[in-house]
């Protein structure tokens, strides 16, 4: 079981990778990396506030939805939007190319900031 410091460390590791690829046009991978940065921050908060360590995406989503004392609706929407786009990028090759572009990446970075700003 990873402690919350490990999640921040992994988020920074993922961010370093993002900086290496952000100027390329591999939007599917860029959105995936952004999502996995966000996921590490979410896991950090779940550990910090709730001492929870979800094993599945579904468990993680449920914890965010059920703990509005710690996570706002906008926090959930930002996270869910990143998750939805990254899953589309990975599993729906005929769909993402018309959806995920430079503007979508910019909007996703705003969502990532919304999540990071939850840092206590």
């Amino acid at each position: 079981m990873a402690h919350s410091g490990i999640h921040i460390q992994q988020a920074k590791h993922n961010t370093n990778f993002f900086k290496k690829i952000e100027n390329f046009f591999f939007y599917d991978w860029i959105i995936t990396v952004i999502f996995y940065i966000a996921l590490q921050y979410v896991d950090h908060f779940l550990d910090y506030f709730l001492k929870e360590h979800p094993n599945t995406h579904q468990d993680r989503d449920d914890l965010l939805k059920m703990n509005d004392k710690f996570f706002s609706k906008n926090f959930f929407i930002s996270y869910k939007s990143l998750k939805n786009l990254s899953e589309m990028a990975r599993y729906q090759p005929d769909k993402w190319q018309n959806i995920i572009d430079a503007n979508k990446i910019s909007k996703s970075l705003v969502d990532l900031e919304n999540i990071k700003n939850r840092i206590p």
Partner: peptide, 21 residues
Amino acid sequence: FSLEYDVSKEFVNLKFDFILL
């Protein structure tokens, strides 16, 4: 996704996953 959040609050005994395509 706002609707997913609201539905989860309204029907707490059920689990949801909304996907937009």
